[in-house]
Structures are given as C-alpha cells and as structure tokens.
C-alpha cells in the first residue's frame, strides 16, 4: 500500500451527456505529505479534477490510482481514505443537524453499514472540532452559522476520518483574511504530519510558509506544474497568465 499518494496517468473525465471530456489526458503524481495548490480560471476543470481523484465522476480514459487503489474500481474505498471539502454548500437554516452531528458523520463511511460510532469515533470528532476551534459550536444548528463557520465544520467533518489525502475546493472563498491564515496553518500542520493536501484556490495571499506544488489548469489540461515557496505562488501564476499565447 502507498498511503497518501495520487497517481493520474492520461486521465480524461466527461460529464454524462456532454460530448467532450472536461479534463483531458491529465498525468501527474503526488507524494504523501505534499501540499498542492490547484489554480486556473473558472471552468478550467479544477472541481472536476478533485472529483475525479476521489472517484465521484466516471473516468473515460486513463487510469487513476489513489492511496494505492484503482479509483474506477474502488471509488468507495478511496473515499474512506480521502477527505473532500466541497465548494458549493447551502444548508437550510431549519435543518435538523447540529455541528456535532455533521462532524461525526465524517466517520460513517469508514464504519460502514451496521456499525455505530463508538467512543473512539467521538473522540476523533471532538479532536477535529478542537483543532478548528469550533468545539463551542458543537450543539448549534449548522444552518444558522455563518458561511465561514460552516466551512470550518466541513473541514472538521473531513479531518474526523483522519484522511490520508484532503481535497479542498476553494475553501477560502467564505473566509476572511484572518481566518484564512488560521485555516492555512491547520492545513500546513496536517501536511507536515504526512497528510497530502490538494487545495483549489484563487486566493494566493494566505499560503503556507513551506514548499508547495502548484498545478495550474487551463481548458481541462495542466498548464503548469512547479514547486516553490508559498509566498512565491502569486508571482508564478502572474507570470503564467502573462505568457499565454492563446
């Protein structure tokens, strides 16, 4: 087994009903503990890339291996090891779920049918809430929190399952500057501890103080794959958009 690795070889993914694949022939490998920032314009295929990695979309060509598992064959198995913080969420203010309910749900997939969460599961959920600083919100209704608080709850939900890989889709779009760097420090911490982090982001002002890998996407393909320090990312991306000869 190879925990925390992502290996894509010529992968294309199409949505049902569309003629052309959204991402086309993408190949790259990510080692365990890497911090990857995925950039690129709207519609480039960033969300599609994340949902290809965790097996939620059908791969039409190529082969994706995540945590040593073939994604096409064992999507559910991949998803018990890979966290995914989705981009667009809207919770009904009256929805009958507390923050605590939502965070413990992160462990349901690992538990599988028929097994109830035990002491250990609740301990991991509490730990995740403490890390995100939301333990005080545990009994609050999720629908009545601010967008930023909800974002933290979803991150805690994913950390509760102790993922080998954490995918995040524009996690900063709901957060103010201060909270961005707070969350970024947490992500840096888990990456340093060996969990691979793949984050789609437009905001390059709160990136970690460590080496990051930048993957830039354009029209469903990779246009840049580079390593640099977090504070150099913005410049790299700007150079890239300056040199487009399309």
């Amino acid at each position: 087994m190879t925990p925390g690795t992502i290996d894509l070889a010529g992968v294309s993914t199409a949505y049902e009903g569309s003629d052309l694949p959204v991402i086309r022939g993408i190949s790259f490998s990510v080692a365990a503990g890497e911090f990857v920032v995925v950039g690129g314009p709207n519609g480039a295929g960033k969300t599609t890339l994340l949902e290809t990695i965790n097996g939620m979309l059908p791969i039409t060509h190529g082969r994706a291996t995540v945590c040593g598992l073939d994604v096409a064959a064992s999507g559910t198995g991949v998803r018990t090891k890979v966290g995914y913080v989705i981009q667009n969420f809207a919770f009904d203010p009256l929805a009958p779920f507390t923050v605590g309910n939502v965070v413990i749900m992160g462990r349901y997939g690992i538990l599988g049918y028929g097994r109830q969460p035990g002491e250990e599961d609740h301990r991991m959920a509490e730990e995740a809430m403490r890390l995100l600083g939301i333990e005080d919100l545990a009994d609050r209704s999720i629908g009545k929190l601010s967008g930023g608080q909800q974002q933290k709850v979803l991150i805690a939900h994913n950390l509760a399952k102790k993922p080998e890989i954490l995918l995040l889709d524009e996690p900063f779009s709901n957060l103010d500057l201060f909270t961005r760097s707070f969350v970024c420090d947490i992500l840096t911490g888990i990456a340093d501890a060996g969990c691979t982090v793949v984050m789609v982001s437009h905001a390059f002002d709160a990136l970690p103080d460590r080496e990051v890998r930048i993957l830039a996407m354009k029209d469903g393909m990779l246009s840049l794959d580079a390593r640099c320090r977090g504070d150099e990312v913005e410049e790299k991306i700007r150079n890239l958009s300056g040199s487009v000869h399309a």
């Binding site: 939620m56 198995g77 018990t80 966290g83 989705i86 919770f91 749900m105 349901y108 690992i110 049918y113």
Partner: peptide
C-alpha cells in the same frame, strides 16, 4: 433503524455523504 446513520447523512447532504465514503 438499521441504516439510521447512513440515512441521516444522506438527508443532510447527499454529495457530502457520498464523499464521506458512504455507499
């Protein structure tokens, strides 16, 4: 009763439930 936790998660948000590794 048997699938209470899965049903709860699906009711909360089907996509999040699926991403959590629930069948």
């Amino acid at each position: 009763a048997i699938f209470a936790k899965e049903i709860t998660a699906i009711i909360f948000n089907r996509k999040i439930a699926e991403a959590a590794g629930i069948r």
